[in-house]
Nucleic acid binder design. Sequence first.
DNA 1: TACGGATCATTGAAAAAGTCAACGATTGTT
DNA 2: AACAATCGTTGACTTTTTCAATGATCCGTA
Lengths: 158, 158
Amino acid sequence: MGPQSTEMEIPRLAAAKIGNDVGLLLAKLHATGSLLNNKALADYGLRERSFSVLTLACSGLEPTQRELADFLSLDPSQVVSLVDDLEHRGLVTRAQGKQDRRAKIIVSTAEGRRIHNKARAGLEECEQTQLAALTEDENAQLRALLKKALWGSEPTRR
Amino acid sequence: MGPQSTEMEIPRLAAAKIGNDVGLLLAKLHATGSLLNNKALADYGLRERSFSVLTLACSGLEPTQRELADFLSLDPSQVVSLVDDLEHRGLVTRAQGKQDRRAKIIVSTAEGRRIHNKARAGLEECEQTQLAALTEDENAQLRALLKKALWGSEPTRR
DNA sequence: TACGGATCATTGAAAAAGTCAACGATTGTT
DNA sequence: AACAATCGTTGACTTTTTCAATGATCCGTA
């Protein structure tokens, strides 16, 4: 369907003022990125979002569904669907919250971690493709700026 | 509903590896930004996308609908809806393509430019809110990196 | 302790957005 | 002249988003 080449010609319309609009730039880069990411993740039966959930389940941070919803900017009901899917496939399980019995903690299974590692490798490749125009430094810079824009200063450096 | 404060606490989950995932960072910043932008544009009966179309219609670049679809990463049928709406409200008109009579060139009306100027002012304010954590330099840097990631090197400097 | 309001995950329904194939008109190519 | 390709448009279909309602649980307060 779309152009598969690594080459990316500068569209005529990029000259418009709106070519400086952060909102549009984010939307565009996000759109093209999602396309690539979802394509890469399809091999593992995952999509961008289920991968995010799986990643956080694998993180050891023991996120609750509410935390997932907030962090991923999703409606809680969407998290239910995502977790349902991952759980049915045996990649994560719902554990009872420790302090709060209403909450469900999402943790990965061994199989979930296995799939996750494979998928992550594929994704990194994919990400490099998307940001091929940037140098290693610029790549890191972009990440840092996005994080700072989102959460102010830098997150707890460790 | 949501938190209206300018303060943004660093979520616990940001510590996860995925906090470095460019895809997620883009999705998140884009999501929060869209929310703010759409809220700001609602005063003018616009949304992020209709504003983008209006902006390009005002740009003097005489974009065709096909170009709009490509540039905004939309399906051509979505552009039809957006232009229909703007046209019904007298903000843009469809002009016949010059070389290609199949194509329709979208140009703004005087009223369209009036609304656009007002809306743009509101949006800039909004954008500053979103990127409040960044310095002026970082703000420019972010734009430059996003553009480079999208289109390689820098677009025609002028 | 018991009450009341708030929060969590879940469900289901309604609205919005996205995807896709088909069409007439037009273009460019052979 | 014939052919395939492209542009805008329409309509059907699927997916995603949004939202209100619910039972269970938590927390603050009387």
